[in-house]
Design a protein around this nucleic acid. Sequence first.
DNA 1: TAGATTGTTAATCGATTAACAATC
DNA 2: TAGATTGTTAATCGATTAACAATC
Lengths: 212, 212
Amino acid sequence: MPERANAGRIPAGVIERLPEYLNALFRFRAEGAHTVSSADLSSVTGINPAQIRRDLTHFGSFGKRGVGYPVAALIDGIQHILGSDQIHRLVLVGAGNLGTAIASYDGLRSRGFHIVAIFDAEPAKVGRRVGDFIVKDVSEMEEFVRDQNIHIGVLAVPQDAAQGVAESLATAGVRVLLNYSSSLVAVGGDVVVHNTDPVRELLHTLFYLSRA
Amino acid sequence: MPERANAGRIPAGVIERLPEYLNALFRFRAEGAHTVSSADLSSVTGINPAQIRRDLTHFGSFGKRGVGYPVAALIDGIQHILGSDQIHRLVLVGAGNLGTAIASYDGLRSRGFHIVAIFDAEPAKVGRRVGDFIVKDVSEMEEFVRDQNIHIGVLAVPQDAAQGVAESLATAGVRVLLNYSSSLVAVGGDVVVHNTDPVRELLHTLFYLSRA
DNA sequence: TAGATTGTTAATCGATTAACAATC
DNA sequence: TAGATTGTTAATCGATTAACAATC
């Protein structure tokens, strides 16, 4: 019996849909459901039920014919596939309005992303309290990230500082960057950068807006 | 000679790539380039040059064989296709840390998205200055949005207020919602909601992270 | 057993890419 | 003219969906 397919063979689209399934499953769990069918998941996510079933079979067999999928086990399964069954520690850089907002954002922590330190370059901000943290000086960042073996960094710094901070984090071993600053950053190697660019999304929505 | 293809026939993928081309073109323009080839655009966007050419032909013929695409004209062309050659007015709801950060975000304005008012429900915030605005009471929001014929709303409100504000904006005629609050919002009808959910992106990145 | 729903195959659909004639 | 690069066709590739046998 063949084991799960090779990770490299799994279409990117499948991986991108897994978080959607997870969202839907959390909703069903909150409503007390113990079992869901692919049709149920389809009604919440808008994704074709056949595709949901097919996506899941890439990773094994989670359901029971005639019954559906067990909510709790499927949540565990998908979280395990994504690696989100573990805590992921991250550093936040920038203690301004945006950084403060991110620090108090509960969505990250509730999904296993734990901020472990906040850095800023401004002397006036260093030493101040933001959320549960005392802001550290950015000069300590590289060493901290390296020593603590942090792989995820969140950027909420001014536009002209973003690229420098990004490179510094990459040097220190960060593998994933979530960039909330208003400039695109690009770093080489195998670092994945998510430039959170609301404008891009707005732009392609405009196309449909003007035609409706 | 057939005119441009029907908008409904243009693949969503094409529309999603247009903002990427725009980004690349802005960069080439900033560097003083007057002409770019599909290979140039490919090197910046990572998108296959044949696909770039094919995408553009959905909307007409922008280039010159043997020469390439005129940067300025192509920018104008794509902006016109997207409707981003016009100013789009929007309202921001929420004057906390996140709202303040968004109000001072220059990326929106530089791409033609103009904030015209900021609303908040907290009496302590109403009347205060945020950026160039005096925060208005959220009770005035619906009337304002309707009267001013606003089609875009940005949400930066607490989790439990998000859904209500979203519905209120939809009722008042908003067609596109950019939701920065930490809860998913859903509204019916033909309102497009962009739930800015960094967690979803982080999650599917994790999959590759754990396998590298 | 009858009804439901998965897992899986096969068919469809659409998007990507390679190749090249047209032409600047 | 020779070199470059588009616009476009044809080939490839992959993803989506429909259908259904397996089975709970």
